[in-house]
Design a protein around this nucleic acid. Structure first.
Ligand code: FES
Ligand code: FES
Lengths: 136, 136
DNA sequence: AGGAATTCCTACTATTTTAGTAGGGATTAA
DNA sequence: TTAATCCCTACTAAAATAGTAGGAATTCCT
């Protein structure tokens, strides 16, 4: 089980944004340098963060991004979800009639994975961007 | 974030073993049919389960596998660990001096992922093979 | 006005991981 | 002796991830 770089980067970048807040917006170049993440990759990630209303952008020279909401109101689950990192422990389609074994009943472990999902989602729901400073 | 088939299969197969216990050992062919998992793939998985002392094998005709310990004493973490499904949320090497950002300090999110690890491992530690019957 | 910095967007490629196949050897029950 | 079964390793195919590339649009600054 793993969490991919995209999700990690997204959280790192958001944390960077939160903790390096200044007057104007923060450019991806800055974040790229501080966090050692490829600029082009960051751009892709921020596109999604923006579409999910987690950051606001300003274009042009001196442009960049700022958090759309206070760090205390942004849950990690929001970030993870925004970049398509799904918590996906189930094998079968959630709403399919068929189980992962292709039979009409759910497999013996189905409920287990379902519970694990809840467990992990719970974690991401509980932690706010703001908490990262305390953790770190 | 996802859990891979190998881990799922391992748990399924162990659960199958536990709930279909009979007099003699259970062959992989049986499990393969019941759980709809390729036989050759199951063989690979059971090799690991055996090396980790979770099952015992008997070879030859009518051979197969039995649980090495009662289902109440087998933790899911044992199974997951046996088949190399690691809970791996950290990016950096656990014992490396360098962070995932290749700097000498840990990145802002390091502790977060560390906590998530603990959270997930905790789940797997808590659930026993036996509990699967109740969940299912 | 012109150039530099920056976001925006899409498409492509490379790398890594996962999933699964293949094949042959060893062992044992009937 | 034969069929069923485990044992073991190597290979291949498919999918997911990570990252690159390139160009358009916008805005600031001189
Ligand atoms: S995970 Fe849903 S049926 Fe197996
Ligand atoms: S995850 Fe350990 S330093 Fe970033």
């Amino acid at each position: 089980m793993k969490l991919t770089n995209k999700g990690r980067y997204a959280v790192m970048a958001m944390a960077d944004l939160a903790s390096n807040a200044k007057d104007g917006p923060i450019s991806l170049t800055e974040i790229s340098l501080r966090q050692n993440i490829s600029l082009a990759y960051l751009e892709q990630i921020f596109l999604k963060l923006k579409n999910n209303k987690l950051v606001r952008s300003s274009r042009g020279a001196n442009g960049g991004y700022v958090l759309e909401k206070p760090a205390s109101e942004i849950k990690l689950s929001n970030i993870i979800y925004a970049v398509d990192e799904e918590v996906k422990t189930l094998n079968c389609k959630k709403n399919s009639k068929r189980g992962c074994n292709n039979k009409s009943t759910k497999c013996i472990t189905h409920n287990l994975w379902d519970q694990l999902d809840q467990h992990i989602i719970g974690f991401f729901e509980k932690v706010k961007l703001q908490d990262l400073a305390k953790l770190g």
